[in-house]
C-alpha cells in the first residue's frame, strides 16, 4: 500500500477557536501529533482540555481554525461535506460513548449501516457485518435489537460497526464512559484485540486505567500536548486491567511529568 509511508494521522500546529472577540475560546492551541499505522494511542485530559475537539477534528466531524491535518497523507481541510462524509465512511470507524446504536434496528442492520452508506450490496454487507460481529464475540446476537443487549454488548456492537468498513483508523471517544468495570473490560479487550491484529486505534479517555491499554499516551492540557510517551506495562494480565485495576503503579512511573 502506498499509504504505508504516511502516518495515519499527521497534525501540525492545529488550532481551533470557538466564538470571536472578547468571548473567544481557544480549544486547541497548536497541537502537533503523528500517529503511525498499527499504533494504539490514548489521548487523555480533563474536560475542557480540548480532547473532544481534537477527536472531532481527527474524525472529520469538525474543521480546524488553522494548522494542517493529514489523514493517510491527505489534507482533509479542503474537503466539502460530501467528501468528508466519504472519509468518515471509509477511513474512520467511530466508537462513541453510550447510545450510539440506532434504536429499533437490529444489531446486524446497525453494523451494516456504514456499508450501506458506502453503497455495498445487501448480501456482501450481511456477510461482512456477521464477520465483524463474530470478531467482537457477538455473532449470535445479530438479530437482537440494541435494547435487548447489555451496555457492554451494545458498545461491542458499536466497535463491530466501527471496524466493518476496515477503516484506517478506529476512533473511540470514552468508549467505557458509561459502563461498569466488567463491561469496560469486555470492550477494552475487543479494542486490544483489534490493535493486536494491526488496526490503528485512538482512544480518548479521562481514565488512567483505560489509557493503560494503549501503547502510547498523549496528555492534553489547555489545548496543548504536555505528555507524549510510550506506556510501559508489566507483561502479565494485560487483558484483566479493567476488572482488577492493579496498574496504577506503572502508570505513574510512565507519566513522571
Amino acid at each position: 500500500m502506498s499509504t504505508l509511508e504516511h502516518p495515519v494521522i499527521e497534525v501540525r500546529d492545529l488550532v481551533k477557536t470557538y466564538g470571536d472577540g472578547e468571548t473567544q475560546i481557544k480549544a486547541l492551541a497548536g497541537v502537533d501529533l503523528a500517529v503511525h499505522r498499527g499504533e494504539y494511542l490514548a489521548i487523555m485530559g480533563v474536560s475542557g482540555s480540548g480532547k473532544t475537539t481534537l477527536m472531532n477534528i481527527l474524525g472529520c466531524l469538525d474543521v480546524q481554525t488553522s494548522g494542517r491535518y493529514l489523514l493517510d497523507g491527505v489534507d482533509v481541510s479542503t474537503f466539502d461535506d460530501r467528501q468528508l462524509a466519504r472519509v468518515r465512511n471509509r477511513r474512520i470507524g467511530f466508537v462513541f460513548q453510550m447510545f450510539s446504536l440506532i434504536p429499533r434496528t437490529s444489531v446486524l442492520a446497525n453494523v451494516e449501516l456504514p456499508l450501506a452508506y458506502a453503497g455495498m450490496k445487501a448480501a456482501d454487507r450481511r456477510r461482512r457485518a456477521r464477520a465483524a460481529l463474530t470478531t467482537v464475540g457477538l455473532g449470535d446476537r445479530a438479530d437482537h435489537e440494541p435494547n435487548q443487549l447489555s451496555g457492554g454488548q451494545q458498545q461491542r456492537v458499536a466497535v463491530a460497526r466501527a471496524l466493518v468498513t476496515a477503516p484506517t483508523l478506529i476512533l473511540a471517544d470514552e468508549p467505557t464512559g458509561n459502563l461498569d468495570s466488567t463491561s469496560s473490560a469486555e470492550v477494552l479487550e475487543v479494542l486490544d484485540h483489534l490493535n493486536r491484529i494491526g488496526r490503528t486505534v485512538v482512544l480518548i479517555t479521562h481514565d488512567h486505567r483505560v489509557a493503560q491499554h494503549a501503547h502510547r499516551l498523549i496528555e492534553l492540557v489547555d489545548g496543548r500536548v504536555v505528555t507524549d510517551e510510550p506506556i510501559r506495562r508489566s507483561p502479565a494480565g494485560e487483558s484483566y486491567d479493567g476488572r482488577h485495576r492493579p496498574r496504577t503503579g506503572p502508570s505513574s512511573e510512565a507519566v513522571p511529568a
Partner: peptide
C-alpha cells in the same frame, strides 16, 4: 451518528 458513519 448516521453522519459520523458517513451518511451522505
Amino acid at each position: 451518528i448516521r453522519k459520523a458513519l458517513g451518511a451522505p
